[in-house]
């Protein structure tokens, strides 16, 4: 049976508080000997998800709830806000594009979810008018 650790964390939607969540994720990943690159990818995915919650959820309690579940071979992170939910155009980034720049492929905004999907092995989003939960899994790779 694998050794499993669960950590629950609630952070306020204050500037830089996403770093506290990222640090917790990195400590758990290091505990299970994830490599340095995976640890950085996990931190970035946590940061982007927390920033999305802070910027777009319109949550009245101004809190982000994070559940970490780490086993010997993977880290699962669930990040929940109690905001108004997200729409399809937010999910694909088109609502957040802003004014077009010189190069259409250099989109300035709305890339957080793209980054999360590229860095994590599995990503799931559940959203309703009562809030949003973004869950992702990073699997440990053999060295």
């Amino acid at each position: 049976m694998s050794d499993q650790h669960k950590v629950l964390l609630t952070i306020p939607m204050y500037p830089d508080m996403e770093l506290a969540a990222a640090k917790t994720g990195s400590v758990l990943a290091e505990l299970k000997d994830f490599n340095e690159e995976a640890v950085e990818e996990i931190q970035l995915a946590i940061i982007e998800t927390c920033i999305n919650a802070s910027e777009h959820s319109q949550s009245e309690d101004k809190e982000v709830h994070i559940q970490f579940l780490v086993t010997d071979d993977q880290l699962q992170v669930k990040i929940t806000d109690r905001g108004v939910g997200i729409t399809a155009d937010t999910l694909d980034g088109t609502r957040l594009l802003g004014s077009p720049g010189i190069h259409p492929d250099l989109r300035k905004r709305g890339r957080g979810l793209q980054i999360i999907k590229a860095l994590m092995d599995e990503v799931m989003i559940e959203s309703s008018p009562n809030g949003t939960t973004v869950s992702f899994i990073k699997k440990k790779t053999a060295e």
Binding site: Q43, L44, I47, I51, R109, R111, G112
Partner: peptide
């Protein structure tokens, strides 16, 4: 670390 706002 660099977040997506930093990248923008």
């Amino acid at each position: 670390l660099i977040n997506s706002i930093g990248i923008s």
